[in-house]
Computed example of a mutant assay.
Amino acid sequence: MTLRTLGLSMVGVAGLLALPACKKEEAPPQPAPTTPVAAQGAKEHAATPIQAPEAAVPVAPAGKGVVKGTVSFTGTPPPAADLPANSDPACEGRGDRDQSLLVKDGKLQNVVVRIRGTVPGAPPAPKAPVVVDQSKCTYVPRVQGAVAGQSVMFKNSDGTLHNVRGVVSTRAAFNVAQAPSGPPVERKLPTEGDVLKLKCDIHPWMTAFVVSNPNPYFATTGADGAFFLEGLPAGTYTVEAWHETLGTKTAEVTVKDDAPATVDFAFSAPDASAKQ
């Protein structure tokens, strides 16, 4: 064997020995690319949020008329009485003063302003109930309106036992117990009388009112004393303002389709004495 042949043989052997090492250093194969259709489907699936249940569609009003105004309190309101002492830890955070008469800057809160009587063409009573929650041993809201025929749902957000005793005038309408943070309880509004008073015998300071009306044209005043009734057919109506301790005020108003009607009410401390 010549030197040249020997050299070529050595080079060939070295090449064979180096070949596995080269293959070892190669990058591992990449996974097959996702098809555009699959990628698009995965993207759409990831971006789709959980849909909330659809809200109930409100019933369209019967007309275009509007009644608006303000409920005021004249004079100096009497001081609010202190609530009884509380030892229930679930009631922590409740107010210390009676909430039956709330006046701010001369404006009266928690007044139900409503159109009295039936209104031709008015929408029917909503299927959903009005809701009264029990939070920090307080009924929330304290005062609200409802359409005759509606139900009222009671929730217990407190970690303590409550009972809800409904009273119309002096007659007991129902009395239900609710376990701490228990499930809601629903009751039909009584057909006799239009003011349902709610009491808790376990926490005697708890009081609330649901005022039922034969039509849906009512509102409860907030801290600014304002109210706004819309959707009324044109015509002449009796408007009533009801307060739990001050009684009622009424006014006649003529409603037109092309302009809002304004009516204001004023209560004073002597109204409370007259009711008593």
Rank of each mutant, 00 (worst) to 15 (best):
T248V: 11
G145Q: 03
Y139Q: 05
H162P: 03
L3H: 13
Q40I: 00
A223F: 05
R142N: 12
G15K: 04
A172R: 15
Q150L: 08
Y237H: 06
A55I: 02
R171K: 15
K127H: 09
C137Y: 13
F227L: 06
T5A: 13
F218M: 02
L83A: 10
P204I: 04
F154K: 06
A128Y: 02
D194S: 14
V66T: 08
A27E: 12
V131K: 12
H243W: 04
V57S: 09
R165P: 02
S135N: 15
K68F: 03
M1T: 05
T248I: 08
Q276A: 05
T48Y: 10
V164K: 09
D158Q: 09
T118S: 06
T2H: 11
K197R: 14
P216A: 08
T245S: 09
T74A: 11
P31M: 04
P190W: 14
P58F: 11
V185F: 07
S181F: 12
V140L: 14
P61R: 01
M10K: 06
A128D: 11
A27Q: 09
D158V: 09
A125Q: 14
P184V: 04
V112K: 09
F154A: 00
K136S: 11
T248W: 00
M10T: 13
V164M: 07
V71I: 02
S151R: 13
A259G: 02
K199S: 10
